[in-house]
């Protein structure tokens, strides 16, 4: 019987991640026809983001691509990606992820039985709220929805805002009724989840990264026959490159769609205003220096230099 690869993810098929998974399926089944079968399960049909990795370790899911913050319990160092204003642009993120420190992070997951196969972009996070956020003072006392991460808690506390944790399914209603004032997300997430309809102001802050990591279990990955594994890996890398292209294009596309909808106004920051945000949030780096490692943070900073 052919080897079966179950790829379980939590987003729709037409998102960058969904398209990457479909691309991977096409490439593998074309090149390893009859030897490997790929089944893609979108929309958290099989497992949610929390349990998918456990199911992977039990050998019943072979590929997944959770958000980086979802694997912080496997290695807390991945929270480095949550640090505010760490990366200047997408190219810097690429340099860091492809560099020695980025690869080491992927490798480090093997202690917990997982193999990190690559990073997948989603985009930079923007800040949205029920009132315009120009300077850090505008965020004071406001409630922001965050994903579970100590770094993000500190990030919002740094501007005297109150982080609130709520399940994704309830966020829309809570934003709509202003039970929560704001949230941070990529353009494409805000567009696909319709947050822009209930958040009249989006500040183009590019303050943080929201990327995914493609994972398999060590046990499964090493069990792949020597004549098959390189082909699968190559197909995966190609799919990731494709997925990243789609993600970058989609990010801009969705930004334009949000602007065109006129339901949300995009707030652009002057360099001085942006610097105020940087100054307010940068002390967070210091707080996590010990936990994440000085070298790691330094490596991320130097990725901005383009060396």
């Amino acid at each position: 019987a052919p080897i079966e690869i179950k790829f379980s993810h939590v987003v729709a098929e037409n998102t960058p991640k969904g398209k990457m998974a479909t691309k991977f399926k096409e490439l593998v089944e074309q090149r390893l026809s009859g030897k490997v079968v790929v089944k893609v399960f979108p929309n958290a049909q099989l497992f949610g983001d929390d349990k998918v990795l456990e199911a992977m370790l039990l050998g019943d899911v072979q590929l997944a691509a959770p958000a980086l913050s979802k694997i912080k319990k496997y290695n807390k160092q991945v929270q480095v990606f949550d640090l505010p204003f760490l990366f200047d642009d997408m190219a810097a993120i690429d340099r860091f992820q492809q560099g020695p420190e980025g690869k080491k992070l992927l490798k480090s997951l093997e202690k917990r039985g997982l193999v990190g196969l690559g990073y997948l972009h989603n985009g930079f996070k923007q800040l949205s709220a029920s009132s315009p956020l120009k300077v850090p003072g505008d965020a004071k006392g406001k409630k922001f929805r965050i994903m579970a991460s100590d770094v993000l808690v500190e990030q919002f506390r740094a501007v005297s805002a109150n982080p609130v944790k709520k399940p994704f399914a309830e966020v829309f209603t809570l934003l709509q009724t202003k039970a929560i004032d704001g949230q941070e997300n990529t353009w494409s997430n805000m567009y696909s989840k319709k947050f822009y309809e209930v958040q009249p102001y989006i500040t183009e802050s590019n303050h943080g990264v929201l990327d995914y990591v493609v994972l398999s279990s060590k046990e499964f990955w090493l069990s792949l026959p020597a004549d098959i594994r390189p082909t699968v890996e190559k197909a995966l890398q190609e799919a990731i490159v494709y997925g990243n292209q789609v993600a970058l294009a989609k990010d801009q596309e969705d930004k334009q769609a949000i602007i065109a909808s006129k339901r949300s106004q995009v707030v652009t920051l002057t360099p001085e205003e942006r610097q105020q945000w940087v100054d307010a949030m940068k002390p967070v780096w210091k707080k996590f220096e010990v936990e994440l490692g000085k070298d790691l943070i330094q490596a991320a900073i130097s990725a901005n230099q383009g060396k």
């Binding site: 497992f47 949610g48 929390d50 349990k51 456990e54 199911a55 039990l58 050998g59 019943d60």
Partner: peptide, 12 residues
């Protein structure tokens, strides 16, 4: 699919 994953699914 293993029984362990079935148990996991029920817990989820």
């Amino acid at each position: 699919v293993s029984l362990a994953t079935i148990a996991l699914k029920l817990f989820e």
